[in-house]
Design a protein around this nucleic acid. Structure first.
Lengths: 144, 144
DNA sequence: GTCGTATTTTGAATGACTCAAAACATGAGG
DNA sequence: CCTCATGTTTTGAGTCATTCAAAATACGAC
């Protein structure tokens, strides 16, 4: 149910590895995202508030900002949804969101490696990254 | 500089054609978006406030909501930016945003027709639409 | 164990947008 | 052309997600 010692150590290592101090709130936040990817700040706060009384949503935002900046987390911002966070993998994967219930799943790039980084015409822009979100109905919300 | 009669009539027609009543604020908002695509509610309000004193940002939001719902406008929501609006064209084009100055340009689909609507694995989702935003540096912000 | 600095706490403030009730204008019908 | 019902806008308040700032605190290098 709760984090075992091994996991906690691994989480602490990840945090240390990007040059950040290891603190209780940070380990707790990373742990929650580990077990539930694509979660927003509010729900992270709800998950840790029992084990860390005295924490606030603002604190969670602070931790998330530090992690995102350090490259430990990836922040995704689908339309009509608060920002969601996931542990960063180096691949360039995208997301599919259920327009009915909001469920989010990972989706690999359609063709081989990041075709989405090569738009046909970039109007002179130097393309650095792409943000791709698919919308549809998840299996549960497809009635029939 | 300002809308001539012909344009105003054309705008009114577009509005009527989707079954909405033609009102001053609506014509004004559509006119602004016509000449400056990818604009947000606040800036639309700034553009029309002189010619329509007594208008408010909320009113603009109301007009935009009505237009979006009627399919007259497309609403795009890039990360770190308020919602932007553009006159809807039926093609499935995407956008490229300058990470420095925020400039937005249209981008056609990378390969032929909407390849972005066919992710490799949809995890059982019924894909309905895709939201694709590229990020990079616009010509102006590329120093050197 | 001590101490400087990074981090968290606490509380307030912002930006973008939505909601609701009252005043008003559009355009269909007479 | 005038009237009236209904669709729109106005006005004002309220919400949600997030950020900012100052004070209190904890991490971990020494």
């Amino acid at each position: 149910m709760t984090t075992d010692v091994t996991d906690a150590a691994a989480l602490a290592d990840s945090i240390r590895s990007v040059g950040l101090k290891v603190t209780e709130p940070r380990v707790a936040v990373l742990d929650v995202i580990e077990r539930e990817p694509h979660i927003d700040a509010e729900r992270i706060f709800q998950s840790i508030r029992t084990s860390l009384p005295g924490t606030s949503v603002q604190a969670v935002h602070g931790v998330l900002a530090a992690f995102s900046q350090a490259g430990l987390l990836r922040r995704i911002e689908p339309a009509h949804s608060p920002a969601l966070y996931e542990r960063r993998v180096d691949d360039n994967h995208h997301h599919i969101v259920c327009s009915a219930c909001g469920a989010v799943e990972d989706v690999d790039c359609a063709v081989g490696h990041s075709p989405c980084l090569v738009p046909s015409s970039a109007s002179g822009f130097q393309v650095q990254s792409a943000e791709v979100n698919f919308w549809g109905l998840c299996p549960n919300c497809q009635t029939g």
